[in-house]
């Protein structure tokens, strides 16, 4: 039995890998890093690329990540994988897109927040729901 540490690879949408490993190689921003057990605590960004994992008594495994973060602690290593390719410009473009969509939607309508209208609309919906509820109760 060699020394192992616990590795978790998680993305916001799912858990990709979890288990004890002997070492791993990840594509950090400054170049590839190899991590063995009892590595000093480290936090770095990783680029998109292959993460190589060597688990005990198993062949090396390769997992693709499209960037993310690598957190190293002496006996726990976590890779927070991105689910999409990220860069400052890409994020910016997405932000501009949603802003534009909102502006377009706003263009032709009144500017003041009409609470009376909001309240009336909600009350109507609530009343409808309450009526349905009552109707159901009466039936049983």
């Amino acid at each position: 039995m060699g020394i192992v540490f616990h590795l978790d690879i998680v993305s916001a949408e799912e858990s990709i890998y979890s288990g004890p490993v002997e070492f791993l190689v990840a594509p950090a921003q400054m170049g590839e890093v190899g991590i063995y057990p009892h590595h000093t605590p480290m936090l770095t960004k990783i680029k998109s690329g292959m993460v190589r994992i060597k688990a005990q008594l198993k062949d090396e495994e390769m997992i693709y990540v499209s960037g993310g973060m690598l957190e190293v602690q002496p006996d726990v290593v976590t890779i927070l994988a991105d689910t999409a390719v990220r860069s400052h410009d890409l994020d910016e473009a997405k932000a501009i897109e949603v802003k534009r969509a909102a502006e377009e939607a706003i263009r032709n309508r009144q500017s003041e927040l009409d609470y009376a209208k909001a309240q009336a609309e909600l009350l109507e919906a609530m009343a409808q729901l309450a009526a349905i509820d009552k109707l159901r109760k009466r039936k049983h």
């Binding site: 949603v98 802003k99 909102a102 003041e112 927040l113 609470y115 909001a118 609309e121």
Partner: peptide, 10 residues
Amino acid sequence: SRVGAKIVSQ
């Protein structure tokens, strides 16, 4: 948008 709130993104 019907009630006229200020929407910055959607």
